[in-house]
Computed example of a mutant assay.
Amino acid sequence: MKYLITGTAGFIGFHLAKKLLDRGDTVVGFDNINDYYDVNLKYGRLEESGIAREKIIDHALVQSERYEHYSFVKADLSEKAFMMELFQKERFDVVVNLAAQAGVRYSLINPDAYVEANITGFLNILEACRAFPVKHLVYASSSSVYGANTKMPFSTSDNVDHPLSLYAASKKSNELMAHTYSHLFGIPATGLRFFTVYGPWGRPDMALFLFIEAMKKGEPIQVFNHGKMKRDFTYVGDIVEGIVRVADRPPKGNSAWQGDSPDPGSSYAPYKVYNIGNSSPVELMDYIGALEKALGIEAEKNMLPLQPGDVPATYADVTDLMRDTGYKPDTPVDEGVSKFVEWYKAHYSK
């Protein structure tokens, strides 16, 4: 199969490209390598995949020096004409759209970035899939779409009309847009709601990275909602396994779907939404404890109130994922945090 993976300089995209390449698929990676966080980490991921930094030129495919069937192009999803040219030339079987402007808190500061990347950029992906049909479009949604919902665990059959950040609203918009194109043009589309992903090569704006950086400097870590937070922390390897399993089975439409009692997670159209989470929420203080154990350092803690746009708990119902793919994420937090710390020490010792 020939895959386009957008966001391959990013955390999940990097790991997904490697897994697909290791099993023999052909991958074209795509990323704009923006400076939302340290670009050296993004280039480091690419170099780990055999994409030499000095060879990267805008809009030109670069061949990997490590993988025969991997090439990468630096471009932006907002560049519709280039997207169309790329799709016309490469004729992808499957598209996995992981490129997005990430981060709940940053959406309070720079909302325009979310509209350009997550709305306009996603529209261009849909238009390209319409013009040059693919077997399956898989795209990243987010657990943040559950917003003000308090019924646990979060189910894809739940209504998600009360987002608490523009980031969450943009991800909900992606799901609505994908359904429209599935209905109108028959594009098989699957949205994946990821739950608090962590692990090696993770983003430096995420809690685990921020915590370890502060702890190694002897500085206090910021603990929001006074530590009364629960997250469905999900190891990146589990996320990637879930993506691959879902990508291998395009939705065909739910014959039992009814308009008088509509299931938000499926459709008569070839459209589906899944949660991918560990389905075992962990207290934030236990997560910090796992990091303290792995580092051998006790953290000084600065207790703070809940931040705007944040939610106190997430918890994934993965019943649909288990039923349809036979898979459930299960890496324990202690194990996943230990792997992150091992990578962090090795990477930054260089």
Rank of each mutant, 00 (worst) to 15 (best):
Trp343Leu: 06
Ala9His: 08
Gly13Cys: 02
Met84Leu: 15
Val27Gly: 01
Arg245Val: 06
Asp93Asn: 15
Asn97His: 15
Asp334Arg: 10
Tyr67Trp: 13
Ser165Thr: 01
Ile221Gly: 02
Leu176Gln: 01
Thr26Ile: 13
His136Trp: 08
Gly259Pro: 15
Ser182Ile: 00
Tyr348Gln: 07
Val94Thr: 15
Met215Phe: 05
Leu4Gln: 09
Phe233His: 13
Gly13Trp: 00
Glu68His: 12
Leu20Lys: 04
Asp286Phe: 01
Ala313Val: 09
Val282Gly: 02
Val318Ala: 10
Glu79Asn: 14
Ile212Pro: 00
Glu342Arg: 10
Ile57Cys: 02
Asn110Gln: 14
Tyr36Phe: 15
Gln307Leu: 14
Phe30Ala: 00
Phe11Met: 07
Val246Arg: 05
Asn118Ser: 09
Asn32Met: 14
Glu90Leu: 00
Asn275Asp: 09
Val94Gln: 01
Phe224Ala: 03
Gly227Ser: 09
Asp205Tyr: 04
Lys216Trp: 00
Leu306Lys: 05
Val337Ala: 11
Lys345Trp: 03
Gly186Ala: 13
Val244Asp: 02
Tyr114Ser: 09
Lys328Val: 05
Ala117Thr: 12
Asp310Ile: 09
Ser165Val: 14
Thr190Gln: 08
Leu284His: 12
Tyr167Trp: 09
Phe72Thr: 03
Val145Asn: 04
Thr120Gly: 02
Asp238Ala: 05
Leu284Asn: 03
Lys293Phe: 00
Asp93Leu: 03
Tyr198Ala: 02
Asn124Phe: 12
Val160Arg: 10
